[in-house]
Simulated scan of single mutants.
Amino acid sequence: MGKPAILQLERVYYPVLSAVGVPVNLLAIVILSRGNCGLSKCITYYLVGMSAADLLVVITDPILRWNVQIYYPNSFLNITPVCSLIYFLRFATTMISVWLTVVFTFDRFVAICCEKLKTKYCTAKSAAIVIGTVSMVGCLVSIPWYFIYEPYYIIDNVPWDCIAKKSFFRSSIWGAFDMFHRVLTPCVPFILILLLNVLTVRRILAASRVRKGLRGQSNGENKKDPEMENRRKSIILLFSISGSFILLWMTRVVYQIYARVTNIQYYYSYSDPRYITESTSMMLQLLSTCTNTCIYVLTQAKFREELKNALKCPFVLIDKLN
């Protein structure tokens, strides 16, 4: 009897995601870091930070967790202390990636809706401080995950694999921590991004009506507004990033709420609809680590140009050598 379809899909999906996620995020980091994409330093810092966080998520989750578990079950990475470390890194990098999306959304909200705060907050220095703070807090908050797991079995005094301790399900302290973590990532970010985007849209629509009215009175004709054009490009980038985040995380958020309410602790089989739903939600969630680079390509003309130059570079070097 063959393996369940969901397991067969995982065996293909995670290696493909790893093979795509690492190079696209590396490309994004290199291209954006060059500063030739026509974006402000503040936006560039956030986009580089988000790409770096996504790259770390790809390394710790699809590669170190799933691919090793599926294809190398007896490697040293499955020794319990190493396995626990991977789980800690997985939760930390995911939290950092999610909250960098939130702070980027907040930065664009301030830039569009808060004129007085904009000059002080929307700077490269502030962006660097915010990114560093989010990264540090994400690591500190995730430390308890390292201590949640115990060996699944022991061979020759060597602990192997990771399974959650029974106290994790019975202790009110661990229960509170689990709830805190689920609320912190991704429930609160999900709500914040939705709220900030709604407020941003309201502000844009109101400002556009006023500006069109003023330009119509002064010019008497319909001409392109450079400021509104720049704002439009910034908004397209913001909404594309936050929109893809919301769509790809939605299933995960809904399932986590359902799992907590119904107190799901195990599955009867790999064909259990609940396992299939959770597995699918995780695959969609991890897909979000690869989408931002595609968004830059689709929405940023200068990024496309830089990408073309980067792809041509090896062929140019080979031509020169010949």
Rank of each mutant, 00 (worst) to 15 (best):
K120P: 02
A92K: 08
S288P: 11
I246Y: 11
L140P: 04
N309K: 08
R215H: 15
N78T: 09
I43H: 10
N322M: 06
I29T: 00
L85H: 15
N292G: 09
S84H: 12
S244L: 08
F245M: 14
S126N: 04
D225I: 04
I31Y: 12
Y72R: 10
A28N: 02
C139R: 10
Y153L: 04
V137Q: 15
A127P: 14
I96P: 06
N25I: 12
T94I: 03
T93I: 07
L56V: 08
S51H: 15
I246R: 04
P159T: 11
T94F: 08
V57G: 15
S172L: 12
W174G: 13
K233Q: 05
N222M: 13
N67T: 12
L140K: 04
T105Q: 09
R11K: 10
D107C: 02
Y267E: 07
C313M: 15
V68W: 13
R304L: 07
N25L: 11
A207Q: 08
Y153H: 07
K223E: 14
P186G: 12
Y296S: 15
T293Q: 03
G138C: 08
P186Y: 01
L192I: 07
T200N: 08
Y87L: 11
P226E: 10
N222D: 12
V134C: 01
Y14L: 00
K212Y: 13
I236H: 14
W249Y: 13
D225E: 09
V12I: 02
K308H: 03
Y268D: 05
E229R: 12
N157R: 04
N197L: 10
T293W: 00
I276K: 13
V188S: 12
P4D: 05
E306G: 14
N197P: 06
L27N: 13
V316Y: 05
L194S: 00
L238A: 05
F76V: 09
C122M: 02
L247A: 09
E306H: 06
G138S: 11
C187Y: 00
Q300Y: 13
D178F: 01
V253N: 10
A259M: 11
K125G: 06
I31K: 10
W160I: 02
L26R: 03
I236Q: 14
T101H: 08
V198G: 01
I86F: 07
A19Q: 05
L196F: 01
V183W: 04
G243F: 07
K312N: 11
F239S: 05
L55Y: 03
A259S: 09
Y153Q: 06
L248H: 01
C162S: 14
R182C: 12
L298R: 03
Q300V: 06
L311G: 15
N219E: 09
A5Q: 14
K308G: 02
P23N: 02
E10V: 00
S279I: 10
I70G: 14
V103L: 03
S126V: 15
I235T: 09
R65C: 07
I193M: 05
S172D: 11
Q69Y: 13
I79D: 13
L195F: 01
G2F: 07
T289I: 05
G243E: 01
P15L: 06
K320W: 07
I204D: 00
A128E: 10
R65V: 03
A164M: 07
D107I: 11
K165D: 09
L55Q: 01
K302I: 06
T262L: 08
T280L: 11
F104R: 10
V20Y: 12
L64F: 07
P273W: 13
